[in-house]
């Protein structure tokens, strides 16, 4: 928790220094939201009956997905675990991380988490407010949905963190992971519901997506926010998310312990 607060302060300071960054970031969130809004409006103009969901709900889903995406790929890209690890491994500074008394996984979670929270407060809130005021972003239907969305969002972050952390572990095998990261984000885009919600896919793809953890990252919280999920659905989704978060975190931990052991024997 202490590291978390310290990281948060650091994050705040750096935004002060890179002031141009800040304005540009708010701008790009708005462009991206505007983009998906136009896309769905154009698609719906085609034949609204295909989709079975009102345009306003779809737009809310898509714009909020963009907002979540900004939190999940927070301001300082270097705080994302896979980027940080690859940077440290390549420069040979990973040793210094091993020397710190705090476990690497927790260290990174604190850092990445603070950046995400900061992104949520400083970048996404303004974008979200503008969306509500100007672009027809809807509010969640009930207070319950709103609260559940926040909880679900935190769980999403945890799941994504663990996935990214495991990707970071790949660095110890190959030095360069930028390309793999690109492919990974491509796959994530398809399977997480970030751009296209699950129910638009063909049946067989839906079945595959259902059993993978990726859809918990975007689709679950978004379905809750837009009210597509009933009370029972909410309870079930949150439990499922929590289970995935725990399993993936543990899996990451096991991988890290393996790598750590290997490092101690091989000497980096």
């Amino acid at each position: 928790m202490k590291i978390f607060l310290a990281s948060l302060r650091m994050e705040k300071r750096s935004t002060g220094i890179y002031r141009v960054d800040f304005l540009l970031k708010v701008m790009y969130s708005i462009i991206a939201m505007y983009g998906v809004r136009s896309l769905w409006a154009a698609l719906y103009a085609q034949d609204p009956s295909i989709v079975g969901r009102p345009l306003s709900s779809m737009i809310t889903y898509a714009m909020l997905a963009v907002a979540l995406d900004i939190i999940f790929y927070p301001s300082a890209m270097s705080t994302a675990p896979q980027n940080y690890i690859s940077q440290q491994v390549r420069s040979g500074r990973i040793d210094t991380d091993l020397l710190r008394p705090v476990d690497l996984q927790r260290q990174l979670l604190a850092r990445n988490g603070s950046a995400a929270l900061f992104g949520a407060l400083w970048l996404v809130m303004p974008a979200w407010a503008l969306g509500v005021l100007l672009m027809g972003l809807e509010l969640p239907p009930t207070l319950l949905h709103g609260t559940a969305f926040l909880v679900s969002g935190v769980l999403s972050f945890l799941i994504l963190f663990s996935l990214n952390f495991m990707l970071g572990m790949v660095c110890f095998a190959t030095t360069e992971i930028r390309q793999i990261t690109m492919a990974y984000s491509g796959i994530l885009t398809i399977l997480s519901g970030k751009l296209i919600p699950n129910w638009l896919y063909p049946e067989w793809m839906q079945a595959v997506i259902e059993i993978l953890p990726f859809r918990c990252v975007f689709e679950t919280p978004l379905n809750i926010y837009t009210g597509a999920a009933s009370r029972v659905d909410i309870a079930y989704s949150l439990l499922l998310q929590a289970a995935w978060a725990a399993v993936l975190f543990l899996l990451g931990k096991i991988m890290w312990l393996g790598v750590h052991k290997h490092l101690a024997v091989q000497g980096g």
Binding site: I17, Y18, V20, D21, F22, L24, K25, M27, Y28, I31, A32, G35, L39, M77
Partner: peptide, 17 residues
């Protein structure tokens, strides 16, 4: 500017569309 990075992010959002 100290970081052209964010400017590039804006551009990426545009060309992704």
């Amino acid at each position: 500017t100290t970081k052209a990075n964010a400017l590039n992010q804006v551009f990426i959002q545009i060309y992704l569309l």
